[in-house]
Each structure stands twice: as C-alpha cells, then as structure tokens.
C-alpha cells in the first residue's frame, strides 16, 4: 500500500551504537516532497515538529493523545496520528499534510484543490474547520486502504472472501472515518463528500 519508495534509513539518529544519552537528534523529514532537516528534542512529535518548527499548521492538535484524529497525516502513504509519533523515530519518513494534498493528484498550479478538498467545500463537509485537515488526510488514506482491499470492521463481519477493492458504501465510510471526531457534527456531509469522490 505504501506508494512511496522506501527511504534510505541506514543513517540518522540513534545509529551510533551505544546510546550516549543525548536527548536531541537531527532528523530529516520529507514533508510534502521537500526534505526538512531539523534538530529536535527527542520528545518532539511529528505533529509538533510540523506546527512549531516548520510553521505547517494544517495538521491540528485536538487531543494530543490519539483520541480525535485532527492530527492525521500520511506517513509513507499511510494515514496516522502524528501526535503519537516521535519525530526522532521517523527520520527519512515521507510525510504528506493537508498543505500537500493537492500535489498528490498533480501540480497544484493555479491553486487547484485535491478532489476531496473540493468535495468538502461543495458538500459543506465542515463547520469550524478544525478537524478538517485530519478528515481530509484520513479520507485519502481510507480510500487507498479500501482500494488495496483492506477490510474494516463492517467488511469483516459481512463480506465474502478478501480481495481488492472494497466498495466504499456509506457504512464503510462511516466506520473507516470514525477515527476522526467532528464536534460540529458534519459527519453526514463528510460521508457525502467522500461518496462524491469515490463513486
């Protein structure tokens, strides 16, 4: 499912044999296609590296504990909660944030949006907008997971033999998008926007 070539991870932090107890590391994160070299406190998460060190504030901090999904980004092509990822452990990782989504489908010249971004605007798939970047990255990930044949809890209970792709029914979308909370309650429009893009 990873759509990116595996990065070279033969060098980087923590590679010097016996740990020397230093608590900072220099890492390179490839963010939206651009390598960004940073010296960070080992405690810094990918989310905080993006928001506080790279001024990429698209990924949001809603809970900081993997309980809301607002921080969802794509890491090596897979959606994940960036608030739970120590940046030091992701040296070399390919990270796509909401700021880079449009470029996944082509050069974002002229301000073109990713089809999901446009569908969210058209369907009013958000209100306050705070969960939106996470919803979008999660939807991109969920669509590629389904295309790769990954089941969800609802697929696993009802479907026949495994094999790609899993059609994204509203039930499938709802289950697969449940890791992204929206307190404004935009869920019906979010599901509609994803349907617009996938059917």
């Amino acid at each position: 499912m990873a759509t990116h070539p595996a990065p070279d991870r033969s060098t980087g932090p923590g590679r010097s044999g016996d740990p020397d107890r230093t608590t900072t590391s220099t890492v390179t994160l490839r963010v939206n296609g651009v390598p960004r070299r940073l010296t960070l406190d080992n405690r810094t998460t990918v989310l905080d590296a993006l928001r506080e060190h790279l001024d990429l504030t698209g990924a949001k901090k809603g809970c900081d504990h993997g309980q809301c999904g607002a921080c969802t980004v794509l890491v090596d092509g897979r959606r994940t909660n960036s608030c739970l990822l120590p940046a030091v452990a992701h040296d070399g990782a390919e990270i796509t944030t909401v700021e880079g989504l449009a470029e996944l489908v082509g050069p974002a010249e002229g301000g073109a949006l990713h089809p999901l971004q446009q569908a969210f605007v058209d369907r009013d798939g958000f209100q306050c907008g705070y969960c939106t970047p996470g919803q979008l990255c999660s939807a991109v990930g969920a669509i590629s997971e389904a295309a790769a044949g990954h089941p969800s809890y609802v697929t696993s209970l009802t479907a026949g033999p495994p094999g790609p792709p899993v059609p994204l029914s509203p039930d499938e979308i709802r289950e697969r998008m449940s890791g992204n909370l929206c307190r404004c309650g935009a869920y019906p429009n979010i599901v509609g926007a994803i349907e617009d893009v996938t059917r």
Partner: peptide
C-alpha cells in the same frame, strides 16, 4: 482466523491500526 481479523478491526481507529 476471522475472529482475529475482526477483533483487530474492532479496536482503535484506522490511523492507530496503521501504526
């Protein structure tokens, strides 16, 4: 082992299961 697949999928979220 469908019980195992279902159990894993019943846990957490897609994002967390990826990690």
């Amino acid at each position: 082992y469908p019980a195992l697949s279902q159990a894993v999928l019943a846990g957490a979220s897609g994002q967390i299961r990826n990690t």
